[in-house]
Write a protein that binds this DNA or RNA. Sequence first.
DNA 1: GTAGCTGCAAACTCTTTGCAACTCT
DNA 2: AGAGTTGCAAAGAGTTTGCAGCTAC
Lengths: 134, 134
Amino acid sequence: MTSLEKRCAEAGLRMTGQRKTILQVLGDSADHPSVEDVYERAKKLDDSISIATVYRTLSLLDELDLVIRHEFQEGYSRYELNWDHHHHLIDLETGKVIEFQNSELEVLKEKIARELGYELIDHRLELYGKKLKK
Amino acid sequence: MTSLEKRCAEAGLRMTGQRKTILQVLGDSADHPSVEDVYERAKKLDDSISIATVYRTLSLLDELDLVIRHEFQEGYSRYELNWDHHHHLIDLETGKVIEFQNSELEVLKEKIARELGYELIDHRLELYGKKLKK
DNA sequence: GTAGCTGCAAACTCTTTGCAACTCT
DNA sequence: AGAGTTGCAAAGAGTTTGCAGCTAC
């Protein structure tokens, strides 16, 4: 049982074959797949899986905070496992998503929220850019 | 003719009654209205306006960069005039959207993009928080 | 055994679009 | 006059849901 499956079980979820498949797909994905992407990849492992189950499972995982749902101004959602905290730079020419971390930013965002009288629960920074010519 | 209307005219758009109405609604809105919100407010000024025109107009204004389209993880878009540059803190308990600016952040985000080899075109920071108890 | 889960298909929400009529320039 | 714009209704995405059957516990 993977640690992901363990966390699901602890939350009281039944570890069905479909859920294992979807968790495996997410674990094997280094990118930020859309629901459709997850569905396509899951179908390769279990041809009988339905997209409704993928939607339902991703919503569940999002509620459990095992997964992060992104809306990169594209009109649909992308998902990724909630392992390490990071942000995204979206290449406007290729659509490629680059991950980055920045400790200065982590400090700054806490400070901004506090100054506004808020406790920070979540936050997102997205940069949209074009590759610099060398 | 308002400055907004002027910028539209300069872009070669016809200043129809509907467009003037929508621009007026946007100018009068201090919040971040959804398409439906803009439509409701516009209807009070011109009962015959259609939601298709609101969608079309907001898309146009977005292309012209007169307006910013947001997706605050809600499943639909919100719009605001692109006057001054700022970011948003979304109150998770009330849904209220608070605007803020931060010059440190402006410097930092440029630096991050540059270090990743990118020219920054656009960016978004969204904080999600709960009000601190006094 | 049974509450929870699934696949299917239908429904729903948000958004876009084809078209004939209309209107700004 | 004529290209751009509009309202309407239909179509298109993406997502959710009711239901009967199935399955993990």
